[in-house]
Structures are given as C-alpha cells and as structure tokens.
C-alpha cells in the first residue's frame, strides 16, 4: 500500500467518522428533542418529483459510474505491490543506459545471509522508501542462534548490497522473525529439556 493510499484512507476515515458521529447525534436529538427542536416528520415534497425528471437517471448513472471507478481504483491501491525492481545506474561515459534488477540482488542477498548465519527460510524483496529502494532480507532465527554471528552475517550482507550501489539509493534491511512453527501467541517453549 502506497503512502498516498494510506493518506486517503486516513483522511476518509476521519471525514466519514466525523460525519457518522455528527449524524448519529443529530438523529438522537431528532428523536428525543434534547437540543434542537426538529420536526418529527421529514418534509421534502420536491424530492420524489425530482427523481421522475428525465435527467435524474442519467445524473445518478453518471455519478454512479464515477463512484464505481473511484472505488475500484481505491481498492486496487490496497493490493500488495512491490516497488519496481529495476534501478538505473549512472553511466560514466554518458552513453547508453545501465539498469540493474534488484529482485535478483535481493534473492542473492537472502541466499548469502542464510549461508553465513544460523537462519532459515530467508527471502529477499524490494520496497520503495522516501530515500530510494530498500532490499528487504527476511529470515527465521534458529533457536540456538548466536546473535553476534547473526548480526555479523547481516552486516556483511548489507555491506555487499550497499557497496554494489555506491550512489546510496539502495539500502538493505534485515528482518528476523520466529520460525513458522512458533508464531505469535504461541509460547516459545515448554518443551522438556530432557525427554
């Protein structure tokens, strides 16, 4: 989900939330006559004839189509999408164009990290950040892992990635999770030491 979609979500939630609260309070007051002296019956005699006019279905149809397209675009914005894995590299001679596929870099970094640290199931992915692209290496920490070894392996992997892109637009982040057999909510343990 992009920052723009997240901002749209947040602003819409605030506006609709405020409208629902205000509408709810107004409806309670309408029924119980606490603050405002609203009529107990809605009077809108011009409304039903308006819906019989020739332009009404075309107006609602056009507005409906626009709303539907907006909604589909909004939903599409929530679909998980990675950043474009291709980055352009600076050309020293000013001729031609060099580009690199970051997804293969991420995959290679994940393999390299798994080979040098007590982790399993390492995967690489590419994300867009405010400062450029970020190679994410995600792995599962082994229960017997020595943190110093893991951090050294991560440091080495990150150095390799950032050295490959000296312009500084590509960074590397290592994320360590629990093995799949011990997800959140499970207690890490209660296994007898000696069976």
């Amino acid at each position: 989900m992009s920052r723009r979609v997240a901002a749209v979500d947040r602003i819409s939630a605030v506006l609709v939330g405020l409208a629902l609260v205000a509408g709810g309070l107004l409806a309670i007051d309408w029924h119980h006559q606490i603050v405002l002296d609203l009529a107990q019956t809605v009077s809108a005699p011009d409304l039903p004839p308006t819906t019989d006019l020739e332009w009404w279905p075309w107006a609602t149809g056009g507005a409906g189509l626009v709303l539907l397209l907006l909604a589909l675009g909004w939903l599409w914005g929530h679909a998980p999408k990675g950043a474009s894995p291709v980055v352009r590299l600076p050309s020293h001679q000013g001729r031609g164009q060099l580009s690199a596929d970051l997804s293969s870099v991420a995959s290679a970094a994940a393999d390299a990290f798994q080979a040098r640290a007590p982790v399993s199931g390492c995967r690489g992915a590419v994300h867009a950040t405010r400062f450029g692209r970020m190679v994410d290496v995600t792995g599962h920490l082994e229960p017997h892992a020595d943190l110093a070894t893991v951090l050294e392996g991560a440091s080495q992997t990150q150095r390799e990635v950032t050295t490959a892109f000296p312009s500084g637009t590509v960074s590397c982040r290592v994320i360590l999770n629990t093995p799949r057999t011990l997800r959140r909510g499970d207690r890490a343990g209660q296994t007898p030491r000696v069976r």
């Binding site: 892992a145 950032t162 994320i175 629990t178």
Partner: peptide, 15 residues
Amino acid sequence: TGSVWVSPQSLALLA
C-alpha cells in the same frame, strides 16, 4: 550500512 530488526518472539525463543 543498514538496519537489522528482530521480532520479540524470536528473542523469546533465544531466551
């Protein structure tokens, strides 16, 4: 050169 992040559940496993 980058950042390393560990889930608390992983640390519980090590603990």
